[in-house]
Simulated scan of single mutants.
Amino acid sequence: MLASLPMYDRPGNAAAHDALWSAIRDGLRARGIAAPDRLDRTVPHREGWRRADLVLGQVCVRPLLREHRDLVRIGCLDHGLPDTPAGFYRSVFVSRADDPRDPAAEGLRFAYNSPCSHSGWGAAQAWRAARGLPPLPATLRTGGHLASLAALREGRADLACVDLVTLAIDARLGGGPRALHLGPRTAPVPGQTLVTRHPDPAPFREAVRDALAALSGAHRRALGGRALAVPPDAAYAAVPLPADPPAAA
């Protein structure tokens, strides 16, 4: 059996993720659902989404809609982002503070984390498309949001698109947008979605809500997720799915 919460799990908040899973695990077992003892941090997240024994996972909305519609949606942790529906998230365009860039401009060197990411790739391209602009060039694939921010600071890119939850967690863990300029925000979409292979999401929702309520204040602050929200099907259907970057990018 596999349980994994990979999207915001870092060394600085790993203990909070472990505490959350321990409470969810106990809640599932109390409801007659088998669950592994610990979170797995060894299985790559894209491989985990395909596992038939996935008890609990977490997936970005772009791969969820493009490749993994068979996963059963439990809901999204609500991070309390301003002007954003519960359980949704947004990205923000980021450039260097000493060289702020307009994301509507042309000729930008764009750093993105992965073509399977809504927050780093799809949201940015959808923002441009909504304004009748051509796609941003896939200048630099970095492998992660923090690596994209590093590329900006080091002058290897002019622009990136990073989700606001990542920036909030980075700030709580001692990082934050140092020497960076925050530009326009993208449209809200359902956040990183908790999923399972179990056919009934109801007991999972109950277990997650009970687990969040039982967390200590310190663990709750480290996670940032304060409640479970269940976005409607229509919210997922409305998510734009821009094309992937060229294969060579």
Rank of each mutant, 00 (worst) to 15 (best):
A238Q: 07
N113F: 06
D102R: 11
P203F: 04
S216P: 07
R185V: 09
R41F: 03
V43Y: 01
P36Y: 09
H45S: 09
L108E: 03
Y112A: 01
G57P: 07
R38Q: 12
R50D: 03
A86D: 11
L54T: 11
S91H: 11
P6M: 04
G144I: 05
A222H: 00
A30S: 14
G87R: 10
F88C: 12
R205F: 01
L39F: 08
G48E: 05
G107E: 09
L56Y: 08
A214R: 11
D70R: 13
V162H: 08
Y8T: 02
D244M: 06
A249G: 08
P184A: 15
A15H: 02
P184V: 04
A14W: 00
R197I: 02
E67S: 15
L56T: 14
G183R: 05
R131Q: 13
W21V: 03
L5M: 11
W21Q: 02
L39G: 00
N113Q: 14
D244T: 05
T193S: 13
T142K: 04
H118G: 00
G191T: 01
P232A: 15
S95F: 08
L228T: 04
R46A: 14
A207M: 01
L194N: 04
A126N: 01
P242A: 09
L241A: 12
T84C: 15
A211Y: 05
R209I: 00
A30D: 15
G57I: 13
R220M: 04
R172T: 06
L5K: 04
A35S: 10
P246D: 14
D53G: 13
R226N: 07
A179C: 07
P82L: 06
S117L: 12
R31A: 15
G48A: 15
L71F: 12
G143W: 12
V230W: 01
P44K: 10
A111Y: 12
N113Y: 05
H219A: 15
L81V: 05
D163Q: 09
A14I: 00
P232D: 15
L152E: 08
R96F: 09
S4F: 03
R131E: 10
R141K: 15
P232M: 02
A235F: 07
D78L: 09
D70I: 01
D53Q: 10
T193H: 11
G217S: 13
R226K: 06
